[in-house]
Amino acid sequence: MTAMAAAKEQFPRRRLTAVAAILIAGLLTVLLTRPAETAVSFTPLSGLMTLKATAAEAVPYEVAIANPKPTLIEFYADWCTTCQAMSPTVAALHQQYAERLNFVMLDVDRPQWASQVSDYGASGVPQFTLLDSEQQVVKTWVGKVPKAVFKTVFDQILG
């Protein structure tokens, strides 16, 4: 093999090595420079598991509507990646406020909640509807909501 042929054979390997190095450097930059709050690892599977666990711990809709505590209703769907991503936030809020606030989760894909989906105008998921102690709508959010936003409103309504 001539020196020229050997050099031509080495070129694709060098190019591949350079591309891999650039990709690794980019990934490391993203991982090392993102804010600490988003550094929590999230995978769709972990989000779905948290979503299911939070739904299992939620107060049944009928119980929440019948008691005098304010209520946060989350309209969600298992397939919704934003719902899955929000599940750790909702779970943390549930732990902090469960004594003073009902947490209800209604799966929009279940026909039994069609009336509530319509009554509360849930046209997207996740939708979070906050009811006061008289079960009147105080606030509605759709999509990803920062934990601090929820806490501010919860603290206001709970006094």
Rank of each mutant, 00 (worst) to 15 (best):
V153Q: 14
P60S: 05
L28M: 15
V108I: 14
P146L: 08
V40R: 14
K8C: 13
N102P: 01
I157K: 07
L31N: 11
F42I: 06
S115Y: 11
L72K: 07
T50P: 03
L28G: 14
Q95L: 13
P12I: 13
Q96A: 15
A91W: 02
L27H: 08
R13M: 15
F103K: 00
F150K: 05
P35E: 11
P126N: 06
K52N: 11
T82F: 07
K139C: 06
Y120K: 04
L72C: 10
A58N: 05
W141L: 10
V63Q: 14
D119F: 05
T82S: 07
I157C: 07
Y120V: 11
T29D: 03
V30S: 05
K139S: 08
I73N: 02
R13S: 13
C83E: 12
P70Q: 07
V90L: 15
T89Y: 01
I157P: 03
N102K: 02
A85C: 01
T43C: 07
S115M: 12
M4L: 13
P12D: 11
L16C: 10
P126E: 08
M86C: 04
V30F: 15
P70I: 10
P126Y: 04
T54G: 05
S133R: 10
K139L: 12
A91H: 06
M86R: 04
T38E: 12
Q116R: 06
G124D: 13
F150Q: 07
G47D: 03
F103T: 00
S118M: 13
G47S: 07
P88D: 03
L130V: 02
G143Y: 09
V19G: 08
G47W: 09
L130G: 00
T54Q: 09
S46K: 13
P68Q: 06
T29F: 15
D109E: 15
R14H: 12
T54D: 09
M49P: 00
D107S: 01
V63G: 00
V153H: 03
P88A: 11
Q136L: 06
